[in-house]
Design a protein around this nucleic acid. Structure first.
Length: 494
RNA sequence: GCCCCGUUCGUCUAGCCUGGUCCAGGACACCAGCCUUUCACGCUGGCGACACGGGUUCAAAUCCCGUACGGGGUACCA
């Protein structure tokens, strides 16, 4: 870790929706960059679009960032010296800069109506010219302006694009050159007085002394505009780094709900661990070397660098996230894993939400027995439901395979008879007894074990049978054997 | 349309800047086998890529040009 405490980066979402995969990765890269350089990570809320911004989105974004462990040093909620950190509360600041731009001639009022603008665009296109604003209002006299105001028109403020070549030295993409003639005099303040993104972003990045702007490539084309605005205001320009897109399919489609869940909150609810999510997200565009896949947060902080971020978009691959998640779940200490799984059991109504501690040690044994069979925490439901409830179905395939040939009822009855008389219902005794019964029956081990497994869990797969038996307990084991025997008898009758 | 960006196994990527060590390495997925009371884990092996075409060079995944394809932008959205 270097000690360049000058590094100041920001994540500036617009609260128009939940925190999605792409946004989370942008936040993560900013956070890692800040931590690596011992710098400051700032959370700013870019809510200048008052139409689409919602309080609920803001809250969810905070929650998702915290869940991922991406705590911010400065910004919304936590405050700091450069606040407020919510753009809708910074109107006065933007007004000051806008006035400065109008006064120094780098911006001007435009009274054209949307209809007029559309017309200008159309004629331009018809004449095969670029559909840029015609600068019709650039040299309005004060009498012109008075007349238009009297007509009831409210002006927007447009940035007067200077005639020059803009060069961005992007930390990821390299040098990108843009000719100003390809840009138009865009609106920086709406007619209702509210400022627009490209203005506020430049101002706030300056006011908050942001040193590096790390954001998605979808902002690349905004960069030259923002540099020009910064220059018009005489502000220092931060360094830029544009992250490639996160895609939803190999066809290059943008990640959308069609490709699975896109919100971080959804993955949290689906039982993914934040450390798995972080590890997964960081590998979407970044790598350390040709072999390392698993990274702890500390390792990421130590090794992260913009130099090793790739240029091309990456496809979100759920299978890889699942692999990472099961890896991190199995790495959890049993006690921690138990804590993690409890809410999911409660959500399914399998565990009393009043006092899960009463069963703590048994619960931990169940979790230990289930072992590494969890891909997500939510899988605890399918993998362990039978420990908590008698109300489970028999897997039809299992029934067909193991309970239709030979003499399943006889086998189950023999196992019942063997288990019913055990006094010390412990692992060793149970195991010895079951082997003895199977040997006496003269059948293969599986032929005895699988029917028993189905009786106890309804499934053909799962943890060690003997551990299951002792955890379920003698009474219930016998009940369940009885239940399967009855079930099979009824089927025979049909 | 115009401007900008990108392109290595199905997917994430290493290699590209500083051309030869790459008939391209790892991981996920998939397939097979082993292990095993089942499932899973684990282990072993297999499948599988330099978008295309020119050029430069003794030599190109690596440098240059073009084409194709994909993406972003072209808003009183961010």
């Amino acid at each position: 870790m270097t000690t360049d405490s000058q590094v100041r980066v920001r994540f500036a979402p617009s609260p128009t929706g939940y925190l999605h995969i792409g946004g989370a990765r942008t936040a993560l890269f900013n956070w890692l960059f800040a931590k690596h350089h011992n710098g400051t990570f700032i959370l700013r809320i870019d809510d200048t679009d008052e139409q689409r911004s919602t309080e609920a989105s803001m809250k969810e974004i905070y929650g998702s960032l915290k869940w991922l462990g991406l705590n911010w040093d400065e910004g919304a909620i936590v405050g700091g010296e450069n606040g407020p950190y919510v753009q809708s509360e910074r109107g006065k600041i933007y007004q000051k800069y806008t006035q400065q731009m109008v006064e120094n001639g780098s911006a001007y009022h435009c009274y054209c109506t949307p209809a007029e603008l559309a017309e200008i665009r159309e004629t331009a296109q018809a004449e095969n010219r670029s559909p840029h604003y015609s600068r019709r209002c650039l040299n309005l006299t004060s009498t012109d302006r008075q007349r238009l105001t009297d007509e009831g028109r409210r002006p927007v403020v447009r940035f007067k694009v200077p005639d020059k070549t803009v060069v961005v030295n992007d930390r990821i993409l390299g040098q990108i050159t843009t000719e100003a003639e390809t840009l138009q005099d865009e609106v920086i303040v709406k007619s209702n007085g509210s400022p627009l993104y490209n203005l506020t972003s430049v101002i706030d990045d300056h006011e908050m002394t942001i040193t590096h702007v790390i954001r998605g490539v979808d902002h690349l084309s905004n960069t030259p505009k923002q540099i020009l605005i910064a220059e018009a205001l005489g502000l220092q320009v931060p360094q830029f780094a544009h992250l490639p897109m996160v895609l939803g399919s190999s066809k290059g489609e943008k990640l959308s709900k069609r490709h699975g869940a896109t919100s971080i909150e959804q993955y949290r609810q689906d039982g993914y661990l934040p450390q798995a999510m972080v590890n997964f997200l960081v590998r979407l565009g970044w790598s350390l070397d040709d072999e390392t896949e698993i990274f702890s947060v500390d390792e990421l902080i130590e090794h992260f660098s913009l130099e090793r971020v790739g240029k091309s978009g990456s496809v979100f691959d759920l299978k890889k996230l699942q692999w990472l998640n099961s890896h991190y779940i199995s790495k959890l200490e049993i006690s921690t894993r138990t804590d993690a799984v409890i809410p999911f059991l409660q959500r399914e109504g399998l565990l009393d939400s009043v006092d899960p501690d009463a069963k703590r040690s048994w619960l931990e044994q169940v979790v230990a027995t289930v072992g590494d069979r969890l891909t997500t925490l939510a899988d605890i439901k399918v993998e362990a439901a039978y420990f908590f409830t008698d109300n489970f179905e028999y897997d039809p395939k299992g029934v067909k395979k193991w309970l239709t040939k030979g003499n399943p009822i006889g086998t189950l009855q023999s196992l019942y008879d063997g288990l019913v008389n055990i006094v010390n219902f412990d692992l060793k005794t149970v195991e010895d007894k079951i082997w003895a019964v199977i040997e006496e029956l003269g059948i293969k081990r599986v032929a005895g074990m699988q029917p028993l497994r189905i009786a106890l869990s309804g499934m053909t797969g799962g943890p060690s049978l003997f551990e299951m038996i002792t955890l379920i307990g003698q009474e219930k084991v016998l009940e369940r054997l009885q239940r399967l025997i009855e079930y099979l008898r009824e089927r025979e009758d049909l």
